[in-house]
Design a protein around this nucleic acid. Sequence first.
DNA 1: CGGACATTTGACAAGCTTCAAGAGAAGTGG
DNA 2: CCACTTCTCTTGAAGCTTGTCAAATGTCCG
Lengths: 251, 251
Amino acid sequence: MNATLPPHTCPPSCGACRLRKTGAFTPVKPEVLAFIEGFRKDTMAVQAGGALVRESEPNAKLFTLYSGWAFRYKTLSDGRRQILNFLLPGDLVGLQQEFGEVSTHGIEALTDCSLCVFENDSLWALFREHPRLGYDITWLAAHEEGHLDENLLTTGRRNATERVAMLLMHLYRRLDRIGLVEDGAVAFPLNQQHIADALGLSLVHTNKTLRRLALLGLHELKNGRLRLLNTRALARIAEYYDTPPRLMPLL
Amino acid sequence: MNATLPPHTCPPSCGACRLRKTGAFTPVKPEVLAFIEGFRKDTMAVQAGGALVRESEPNAKLFTLYSGWAFRYKTLSDGRRQILNFLLPGDLVGLQQEFGEVSTHGIEALTDCSLCVFENDSLWALFREHPRLGYDITWLAAHEEGHLDENLLTTGRRNATERVAMLLMHLYRRLDRIGLVEDGAVAFPLNQQHIADALGLSLVHTNKTLRRLALLGLHELKNGRLRLLNTRALARIAEYYDTPPRLMPLL
DNA sequence: CGGACATTTGACAAGCTTCAAGAGAAGTGG
DNA sequence: CCACTTCTCTTGAAGCTTGTCAAATGTCCG
């Protein structure tokens, strides 16, 4: 039966986790892996466009995105939407909700997604029984905060060209880390409305900016795949200084 | 000798902590308080305008802001600056740095500040010995992330008027929680450049927007104090939905 | 082929930034 | 106590980046 599963669903055992084989995550001892597998209460699949968390949902689940893309967002009453950050495989999601945070944000699947869902109420037990994992979770929270800092600088102080360059560089690098670059290109499921909403720009202006960068030969975006053709120029425009890859915890 | 200390320096014992008497923070048992006091390695004072953390500092300290205001910021090479968030008494600061995050951000004192400084390397020990405090720290990280989400929505999708209304409301509410409202007004040490940098606006446009809101009778800002004169209108403009006050952990 | 949706372009409007300069306020030194 | 400097706030004017409106083109799919 296993042979009939879609290629990217969560494996039944964490020992078979594709992500742990990428070398992007900190290795864990077998007993810790077993604990994590016990902490995982379910796996789940969500179709592209579906909601992982609804914007007003009070007690959402905690989960790790195993495959696919998603994004966190907030909206204003008249429909203006801001994408807060993109979620890629390996990201732990829902900490804020878990902690009863008021800040309502929704999470939507950008592609078909597979998730490892964790027990709603046992986070505290995890901290008690495996402080190391608790520490790791805090690390992840701090790391995501770093992404938000960068996004805030982008929407607050960069112009349209710099914003687009930043987005392309940032996503490409993150995908590279987890082994999703193939033949110098990555799957890129965002449409221009997503990019606009992430960067705080209008759709039309996003299109024109994207077009300009492509004409300058800085990137190529077709058939749902992104290729960076002039990384140096993009990095200079965005003032994107590469962060030395470091291992991240994975739950 | 104690009598000569400035009124807002950190007391020698956490038992005398002003913040814990505000009712804004979760009460802790005496033994936990003793542990926290042991975890605290030093106290520190920084003058207004001084740097709590320099923007490129590799291994900054972890600390709690005891009194005064500060702000986290990032800058681009040509000087454009984005203020990421404001730090008020009770805020735990430096988690990102502690975790060796690359994201360089500076922290600057807006007023004279007093800090409780924690041991640089013992955060892991804290998680191991007092998982509950580890859990609390994660809560704080998630909470700060909620503020960043809100700021991102603000700079990305709100117009100038909405941004200013948001800032005034948000800061006022936070100050109210920790008992810093006096006679319906709060100390407000930001100048217009700070507001502009926090909201992603130019100084001039910030001034004009602020002026317009004041003329409409929504707020009053003089002698370094802020008074909200029409909270309902400000809340409506900003779409600021009050979050029921909840107790926060305090280290 | 028709319908739904994403991308692309042009034209125009508007919000915001930049430039410039004056008015207050606050601190400094003679 | 008063010039002098410095900093912040304020205001007007002009220009540019970005947003809005409208419509054509392309693409996918039933």
